[in-house]
Design a protein around this nucleic acid. Structure first.
Lengths: 218, 218
DNA sequence: GGAAAAGTTCTTGTATACAAGTTCTTATGG
DNA sequence: CCATAAGAACTTGTATACAAGAACTTTTCC
């Protein structure tokens, strides 16, 4: 029944990422075991894993809570991503397979439609992730993308709180298009600055979300 | 008794890293629970963690073995380190605190002595790690150093198998000294190439270790 | 009334019994 | 003799009982 555990983990991650389970919420082993009709032993395994990925904080012999968003983690992950993606995209600009270009274009087309149709922020951001993940994959660095995902709990929630205005989404899309253009044209020298700005862009627009502070780690 | 678990983890990690527990060795929960005089429940917690960090592979409902060295992981971690360190050292070359310079120099002095005294490979590599960790710390990126450490099980063992000749150690030391010189002189432009070579250097000398192949993941 | 201490009721941590699955051995039939 | 199937002896996975610790409530004493 490994799949049952996986199911529960997926479920809890979703609830935490979409802030249904708010930072600070007490996580009780017995409550969870009743909810999912499973004993405490596998629940403990699940909590260990969620803790390792930053979703919850375990206080030994006291209890666990949904982790508060740690701005330090967010900043470090942004730095990591921006540094790696600069390098990766530079490499792609020297040599990218045609099939890869096609996949990237397809994603950008979908993002355009997303904006036209006024789809949800989540749908757009799903495509944003797909675009960046594709870059890693094309460069043979999916391994590193997966590592980053394991430390993403804080970053994703942060981004969610900073819900972007529609004009911001357009900006993101335009930058994606520009990145792709630079890759195609082999304009290696211009990539560094653009990617640097692109990864950090959403950090600059976090002002209009209410009740922000109570979710942040002090 | 969280410290008891930590002790056991530390012990097992050591035995795996120094190849006392060879890749492919079967890890039995009951055997470990007898050896450490503790029940299977905490042992399972320990195995989960060792698995997450790549030290062992768990085959559900079958058993666990000490992981074979995965060359793919090694290559990816080297890429990650080299990319990050290029960036970090460039930043340090623009602005490094005096105290940091002193610490780095102290480490290099110890490495010199290490070579003079014909100390063990392990002692030298401990100082190598200390040097690089210090660079991360000075740049405010200890967070990222710690992430890398979590995926180091393959890299460390690989490096160990590639036991370096003494002249190679001298080369490493000289490169460290050069890195430090570039940082001090602010020669940002020269750093990239040097660090790139430095991180990848040990990859080029893996030819003279016997029985290498049986430890490698196919 | 307030403070400190004892006791109750939570929490998680550990040990163990049992269930379920895998592998190895043995036996049986062709 | 070999192949296949049945069963025994392992493995890990789960449930549960119990231990130990933390927090909260109540009581007792000043």
């Amino acid at each position: 029944m490994a799949s049952k555990k996986e199911e529960i983990i997926k479920q809890l991650k979703e609830e935490i990422l979409c802030m249904e389970l708010k930072p600070g919420t007490i996580i009780s082993e017995t409550t969870l075991s009743e909810r999912f009709q499973i004993s405490r032993t596998p629940i403990r395994d699940i909590l260990k894993q969620l803790s390792a990925e930053g979703y919850i904080d375990i206080y030994p012999q006291k209890g666990s809570i949904v982790s508060y968003i740690d701005l330090e983690s967010v900043e470090q992950i942004i730095y990591l991503r921006s540094t790696l993606e600069k390098e990766i995209i530079k490499e792609l600009s020297l040599n990218i397979p045609l099939k890869g270009l096609h996949e990237l274009k397809t994603i950008l087309t979908k993002q355009e439609e997303c904006i036209k149709n006024h789809d949800s922020f989540n749908d757009f951001m799903y495509l944003d992730d797909a675009f960046h993940k594709n870059l890693f994959t094309l460069a043979g660095r999916l391994f590193l993308w997966d590592i980053i995902q394991q430390f993403n709990a804080h970053y994703i929630r942060y981004r969610k709180l900073n819900m972007l205005k529609e004009e911001k989404l357009t900006e993101i899309l335009e930058e994606h298009q520009l990145i792709l253009k630079y890759i195609i044209d082999g304009k290696t020298d211009k990539i560094e600055q653009l990617v640097h700005h692109h990864i950090r862009a959403d950090v600059n627009s976090f002002y209009f979300q209410e009740n922000f502070d109570e979710y942040i780690k002090k």
